[in-house]
Amino acid sequence: MAVVNKKPGSYAFKIIAYTFCLLLTVLSLFPFVIMIVNATRSSGQIQSHALSLVPGTNLAKNWSILFGRGFNPLAGFKNSLIISVCSTACNVYFSTMTAFALVAYDWKLRKPFFTLIMAVLMIPAQVTSIGFYQFMYKIHWTNSYLPLILPAIAAPTTVFFMRQYMIPSLPMEILQSARIDGAGEFRIFNQIVLPMMKPAMATQAIFSFVMSWNQLFMPQILITRMEKYTMPMMVSLLNGDAYKTEYGSVYLGLFLTIVPILIAYFLLSKYIIEGVALGGVKG
C-alpha cells in the first residue's frame, strides 16, 4: 500500500525539486551569461535591446575602447597576483607552523594561546582599520603591498582549521623516530610535517587566495596610486564617467576581472566545495 501511494507523490516532488533547482541555476548563471554576451555587442545593439542571448561581433572594438581609457586589467591582474600569492604563502606556511606548535608540543601557555586564537577568530580586520591606516601612514607603508601581505601571517581561521586536521593525522611516533635519527625540530617541521599536511594546506590556500584576491576595503584605504591598483579597485573605474555610454566595454571589463577566478573555480570546484563543507568560515 505504502509503496503504491508513494509513487505519484514522489513524481510531484521530483518535478517541483528539479524545477526549483533549475530556476536557481538560471539565477546563478544568467547574470554572467548576459555579461559575456553583451561583452561582444556594440553600444547601439545594447541600447536597443540590452537583453539578448545572441553574441555580437563587436568584441575587438569593445576591447580597444576599454584599454584606451585608463582601465588596465593586466596591471590590476599583476598587482593582485603579487599580493594574493605572497599573502597565501604567508598564511598557509605560518598557520601550519602555529598549528604544529599547538599540536606537537606540550607547553604551559598552549591552552590560553588557543583560546586567544578562538576568541579573535571572528573579529574582522575592518573594524580596526582606522588605527591600522594611521599606523601604516606613520611608518610610510601606504601605497605598499606589505600591509596587505604580512597580516596574513596571523590567520586564526587557518590555524584553527589546520589544528583540526593535524590532530588525527599527525602521529607523534614519526616525530620521535625523526628525532632519534637526529633531525632538528625545524627540519622535522619543514621536511616531514609540511608534506603530510599538503591536502589541508591546498584547501586553505584556495580560500586564502580567493579572499585576498577579492578584498576591496583594505586596498581601497591604503593604496592611492593608480599604477598600484588591485583588480577589485580597477573594477570601480568601470563605474566612472569614462565608460558612461560604452556598455559593451563595461561588460567586457567586468568579464576580464573575473576570468582568472572563474577558471580556477571550475578547475578546483570539487576541492572548494569540500573545503566549505569542512568548515569554511565566512569572511
Binding site: F94, S95, M97, T98, F100, A101, L102, A104, Y105, D106, W107, L109, R110, F113, V120, I123, A125, T128, F132, P147, L150, P151, I153, A154, V159, E185, F189
Partner: peptide
C-alpha cells in the same frame, strides 16, 4: 620551548597587525 618558538611568527604578526 619549540612550542613557543613556532608560535612566535603568529604572535608577532598578531601583536603588530591586530
Amino acid at each position: 620551548k619549540y612550542g613557543y618558538l613556532f608560535s612566535i611568527p603568529f604572535i608577532v604578526a598578531f601583536l603588530i597587525f591586530t
